[in-house]
Design a protein around this nucleic acid. Structure first.
Lengths: 138, 138
DNA sequence: AATTATAGTGCAATGGAAGTGCATTAACTT
DNA sequence: AAGTTAATGCACTTCCATTGCACTATAATT
């Protein structure tokens, strides 16, 4: 059994051929990808399957969903350092308005936020928009 | 001429009847509203008109658009303290996962974010999700 | 090994929101 | 009042997310 299947099993996801391939594909990326991107990579598979595969991954904590403000959900593998479910360990995301790519800045943690009385925080989402290093040419 | 029309003119927006009404409606809210909400408040007006009205307001700095992660754009009037266009003066938003309302926490500014080399920030969006004061019952 | 149960996949269709083109109407200008 | 420009309403399109149902593959049971 390969590494990926072990990881899937570890997260209580049955490692089907499709799921292994999708995981592989996600692991290749250095940016967060939209469902459409995955679709393009697997022209033979159905969109619904990919959709549900990613949803399953998300529920089981294998990927995290990113809302970068484009209106299109992006997904990225949860890295070892990415404990999405643990508060105060959330990283921020950067969306480049030039190349339209979204990257996880895993090492950049979101600072503690103070809220007014009565507000209970459960999740924090921080997206910075601008020009990424590839596009700024520096 | 009433107060609202003065404000619209001040922002270089011609104060039509529709626009004045939409402004009025937005001023009534204490939460950010979706286009659908505005639509429901003006059943006689066309959705496109409301859509374009809000777009115009946004372009002219009368309202700001909020992406609270639900995938539906919300809008809220820019308050005197809300200088959306000026960087580092962005406030954060809170989305209640119980009542599904989004509020502007105008007094809570977003802290300065440090980015890796080559990244240029143009806009920052910070949304906290959780339970609002109305729903937490405290 | 055959049978049953469960989970995964593919196809088709729906729904919701955003956005566009064009004709009509209202509002300003001279 | 005539002409120009902006605003509005209607119809339509597009895009992504999501669901229902049938079919297939996988795992469990006998």
């Amino acid at each position: 059994m390969n590494e990926i299947d072990k990881k899937l099993l570890d997260k209580e996801v049955r490692p089907t051929a499709m799921r292994t391939l999708v995981y592989q594909q996600l692991a290749k990326q250095n940016t967060a990808v939209a469902l459409t991107d995955i679709e393009l990579a697997f022209t033979k598979a159905d969109r619904t399957t990919l959709y549900r595969t990613v949803k399953t991954f998300e529920e089981k904590g294998i990927v995290h969903q990113i809302d970068d403000g484009t209106g299109i959900s992006k997904y990225a593998l949860c890295e070892p350092g990415c404990n999405c479910e643990i508060e105060n360990d959330l990283h921020l995301h950067f969306h480049c308005s030039n190349c339209d790519k979204t990257v996880c800045l895993t090492e950049h943690k979101i600072p503690q936020i103070s809220l007014p009385d009565g507000y209970v925080a459960e999740d924090v989402n921080l997206v910075v928009k601008g020009i990424c290093s590839d596009c700024s040419g520096s």
